[in-house]
Amino acid sequence: MDVINKGRVFGEARCFMSSVEWQKRGLPHVHILLWLKDKLRPVQIDNIISAEIPDPNIDKTLHDIIVKNMIHGPCGPENPQCPCMKDGKCTKKFPRKLLKETVHNDHGYPQYRRRAPGDGGRTATVKLRNGSNVTVDNSWVVPYSSILSKMFNAHINVEVCSSVRAIKYICKYINKGSDQAIFNFRNTDLANPVDEVQTYQSCRYVSSNEAVASVRISLHERHPTVTHLSVHLENGERVYFNEHNFHERITTPPKTTHCF
């Protein structure tokens, strides 16, 4: 967040939201939503976000980082056991359509430029979990920011939220709360009746990494902070009192945040 806000990687941010989530294996990932002060124009998207394999002759380091961290799967017939596969199809909609130019979309995320090998696009070889090698093109690249990828050498997916639908999707992850699970206790003593209330318990899973991080860092951030304003007429605010502080509240009523 310091790199994005203070370094102004995408420009000056007017406000932002972020939330850190934890996978069951104890690995964290963060969802960040930025509102930029200057609106991002369609012609500026290619300068900030890329969905193509970099040229190894120009930047070998960036090329290796993208091939290692930003290639989806690959899934499909070559890898039907990939976690994203459901009913024989990729739930993440890969491979994506190859395009010569970025196409702006008002109903979701833009369709980023993904040039085919015949149009100047590049290919790369990645290794599957079974040990076999597969050649992929730009249709398998997850959109990324060259600056952030090269700086952190990690999987960092960067998208342009050009519609309310896309913003609601990100806010769903930020505001959905902690993961929960339902588990079952079985009583092997047949003499005692089953207590359904105690059988099913609602809980949440907290890994050791999340427990430590929740003490050391802020898992949820929002700027600017939303403050509740008590709207009321002049001298019409609510005053709570009891028999012990009655005279004190009359002489010095509590200050409120807002009045008309």
Rank of each mutant, 00 (worst) to 15 (best):
V3S: 14
G7N: 03
F10W: 11
F10E: 02
A13R: 09
C15N: 14
E21V: 04
L27N: 14
P28M: 09
V30N: 14
H31V: 11
L34S: 05
L36H: 09
L36R: 14
K37Q: 12
K37I: 09
D38H: 10
K39Q: 12
L40M: 14
V43R: 15
Q44P: 04
I45T: 11
I49G: 06
I53G: 00
P54K: 00
P54L: 01
P54I: 03
D55C: 13
P56T: 04
N57D: 07
I58H: 01
L62H: 06
H63W: 11
K68L: 06
N69E: 08
M70V: 03
M70I: 07
I71A: 02
H72L: 04
H72V: 02
C75F: 05
C75R: 02
N79Q: 00
N79V: 02
Q81H: 08
C84Y: 03
G88S: 01
K89C: 00
K93C: 06
P95N: 01
P95S: 02
R96P: 00
K97L: 07
K97G: 02
K97T: 11
L99G: 01
K100S: 08
E101L: 07
E101I: 09
N105D: 13
D106F: 08
G108K: 02
Y109S: 14
R115W: 06
R115P: 04
G120L: 04
T123F: 01
V126W: 01
K127Q: 12
S132D: 07
V134L: 03
N138D: 08
S145A: 08
S146W: 04
I147Q: 08
S149H: 08
F152A: 06
N153E: 11
A154S: 15
N157D: 15
V160Y: 10
S163I: 09
R165N: 11
A166G: 09
I167E: 06
K168Y: 05
Q180N: 07
F185R: 15
D189L: 08
L190I: 14
N192R: 15
P193W: 06
V194M: 15
T199Y: 03
Q201M: 09
S202K: 11
V206E: 05
R216Q: 13
S218R: 13
E221N: 13
H228K: 15
H228P: 10
E234W: 03
E234I: 13
E237S: 15
V239Y: 07
N242E: 13
H244D: 12
H247A: 10
H247M: 13
E248V: 12
E248A: 14
R249E: 14
I250H: 09
T251F: 05
T252R: 10
K255E: 14
T256V: 13
T256L: 05
T256K: 08
T257S: 13
H258L: 14
